[in-house]
Structures are given as structure tokens and as C-alpha cells.
Simulated assay, not measured.
Amino acid sequence: MSILYLIRHGQASFGASDYDALSEGGRHQARVLGDFFLSAGTHFDACWSGTLKRQKQTLGQVRERFLEAGVDLPLPTDTPALDEYDYEAVLRALVPLIEREDPAFIKDVSTMLSDRRAFQKVFGRVMTRWASGSDRVDGLPEWSAFAAVVTAGIHEIIAHSDRGSRIVAFTSGGPIAATVGSVMGLAAEKTIALSWQLANASITRFKFSDGRISLDTFNEYGHLEGQAGNRLVTYR
């Protein structure tokens, strides 16, 4: 039996000019994650990462802790299959549609970049609408297409893994949710909602053998609790 660890990236820089870069808190989360693996004696036989900056920076912080401890972490294989969906493109495409149906929605949209609650309200409504597949917008990929790319990527990782190996992959909430949804046979709207529960620098584990994969644990973040008065447990 082999184990695949899917790691959500550390906290990105919400509201900053470069959202894709880790915040200082995100870097701290990633270092704590690395220390957790080291204290547990968890070694990895292979390492994968998406191509986004926040994913690769999370990996970089973990790798740094491993190297400082004299422990090897295999060089990563990058794959865009682990990248997050383009939520900005989804917002641009669907927010105007929802505003025409519900003018009151404009109030939340106008404050979403300065108010995290407004952002989550807008984000959740728009992404659920996208996942439902009820709209067809030129140039906007469907959730089902995104999920299919993720699933194919996960199967590629599994196909390149030796029996009994431990694999770590640094990714984002959308690909983790898509993988859980595929394994558990969940509807698209329920699947995408899983991504909003995932803490930054959390761990979701899958067991796999002979082409079969099953969910082992979901959204582990105990390594962050108790750190800095629980301020390290973040979701955006």
C-alpha cells in the first residue's frame, strides 16, 4: 500500500499586488509543516508540485527544513495538473450574470477585495454556480474539464510510483477537492465546496494500490494548532 500526501499551499498574499506569493504567515505555516514531517519521521520517495508560485514556495520552505535537518527530499516533478483553477476568470465571467439576476449582489462584490467575509460570500456563490455547469461562457473552461485534468494528473503520479512508496504533492484547494470528489463519487457542487474547508498548509492523504485509490484523511492541520495562538490556522 502506498500513500499520497496532497499538501495545500501556505497562505497566499490576499489583497496584495502579487497574490500568488506566500505571505509571511504562509512561509511560517510551511516551515511548521516541514518540522511536523521531520518530527514524525516521515520521509518521501517522490515529490510533485504544481507550477504556481505559492505551491512551489511552500515546497521550498519544507525542503529548506529538511535540508537543515540533513534529511533528503527528492527533487520535485512539476505538473500543471496540480495548479489551481483560474478563479479570477470565473469571477469575471459569472459575476455580471449573477448581478443581472440579483442586483443586491453588487454590494458584496464592491467590498470583496477589502472584506474577507464579502469575498467568501461572492466566491462561494460564483464558484458553486460555475461547478453546477448551468452556464456556458465562451473561453471559460468548465469545472468538469478542470476536474478531469486533475484526476488524470493524480493517476499519472500514481502510475509513476513504486509499490509501498510515500509521495508528497504540493497543490491547492481546488485540485485536492477534485481528487476527494472523484474518489468519493461526489456531485460537483459538493466537491468544490470542500475546497473552502481546506486550511492552508493542511494535509490530505490517500492510500493507493494496484490502480485503486481511497481517501485516508482529509484536511489535517493539527500541526498548526497551538502555534502562535492558533493564528497559523488560516483558509485564505
Results as ranks from 00 to 15, higher is better:
N230L: 03
Q227W: 02
F206I: 05
S214C: 08
G226T: 06
K207P: 00
N219W: 05
E225Q: 15
D216P: 02
G211P: 14
T204Y: 01
G222S: 14
F218I: 07
Y221H: 15
T217L: 09
L215Q: 13
E225V: 13
R212P: 00
G211V: 13
L224D: 05
R205I: 03
F208Q: 08
H223E: 01
L232N: 06
R231S: 14
S214A: 14
I203E: 02
S209D: 14
R205P: 00
G226Y: 10
L232I: 02
R231K: 14
Y221F: 15
E220G: 11
D216Y: 12
F206G: 03
F218D: 05
D216N: 13
N219F: 07
F218Q: 03
R212F: 10
L224R: 04
D210F: 12
G226E: 09
G229V: 04
D210H: 15
L224P: 01
E220D: 12
A228S: 09
T217E: 08
G222I: 01
F218N: 00
I203D: 00
G229Q: 08
Q227S: 07
R212A: 13
K207W: 08
I203F: 05
G229H: 07
D210M: 10
T217D: 05
Y221I: 00
K207F: 07
L224A: 01
T204R: 01
F208G: 09
S214V: 14
L224I: 07
Y221C: 11
